[in-house]
Amino acid sequence: MLKSLDLFVPGEAGIIKAVSGEGKIRRRLFDMGVTPGAAVTLRKTAPLGDPIEVTIRGYELTLRKAEAAYITMEVRGNA
């Protein structure tokens, strides 16, 4: 099943299928290791509901839902 990362709930995991978005943001995501094929687990959302914290390539990354919306995921289930 495909859905964008911003729709994930805490504990949900998946594999990145595609990364869209405008140049600068996208490049930044790539540089931080957000590339197709990487496994991502949503750890939690911030107290005010946004941004989110994910585990990717063995470290914790935080990004906003607006940016997470650019990331298409293949859901792999709940951890």
Binding site: I25, R28, M32, Y59, L61, T62, L63
Partner: peptide
């Protein structure tokens, strides 16, 4: 501006 940041241990 976007907010994409590492959270160190």
């Amino acid at each position: 501006p976007p907010f994409i940041m590492e959270l160190p241990a």
